[in-house]
Design a protein around this nucleic acid. Structure first.
Lengths: 112, 112
DNA sequence: TGATTAATTAACTAATTGGTTTAATAGTAG
DNA sequence: CTACTATTAAACCAATTAGTTAATTAATCA
């Protein structure tokens, strides 16, 4: 999977509120499928599928503990999202733009 | 559209390499549909549809100029993506975590 | 062993997505 | 008015998504 495919998978995994809610829950710590499903009105298999999407995108890892399959968050793919997004930060963030100019000035000064 | 729907739209708009490439091109400045379509092997209507997805997500704005419908980038929704992603930064970024502790210590010291 | 609990698989459905080709619209230029 | 250019709309198609219910697997517990 190249880095573009990885971004595809990450972005589309994040494009569903249920899956983002699952990640938010996992940010507080490991949880089982049943625990993750509890807040939702959906059936368990539906949650199971959402988990698989997140797993394929590399956003969660799964363990084994008796008949449980605990899920843990792996935020690494979000680092790639943050990097991608940062390419555009100067376009929306005036302060970032100013900071960017200052850093460039410092670099120019050093180069002289 | 609530902020969750907005994130849904933004993330799913970003979940396609063609659309990310279109945004990258627009970061260099306004462009017409034909210009945007040029690098791709796809048909023009296909590009037109991608543009509509981006427009609905609020990532591009369209103008009028004779028979052209120039597109411009609006990176604002990406700010929301960056904010969302930042919630998880301490989980992947050790340096961020350290910085966070330092800032908290400073705040604690000030409160005393 | 048999019952219970946790989770997944299978089979199905309705809606959406991403593409196509052909046709239509809107504006410009002769 | 006609022809050309830019863009979109319509109609279609195959694949994917997000959900369902019913059945199955796997592990524990009594």
């Amino acid at each position: 999977m190249d880095s573009s495919d990885q971004l595809d998978a990450t972005f589309s995994a994040l494009a569903h509120p249920t899956r983002r809610a699952i990640l938010a829950r996992l940010a507080e710590g490991e949880a089982t499928v049943n625990t993750l499903a509890e807040p939702f009105e959906m059936s368990l298999p539906a949650i199971s599928k959402h988990i698989r999407v997140l797993e394929k995108a590399g956003l969660i890892k799964r363990g084994r503990n008796a008949q449980f399959r605990p899920c843990t968050l792996d935020a690494q793919p979000l680092a790639a999202v943050a990097l991608w997004t940062d390419q555009y930060r100067h376009i929306w963030d005036v302060r970032f733009d100013a900071m960017d100019r200052i850093l460039n000035n410092m670099k120019d000064a050093k180069d002289e």
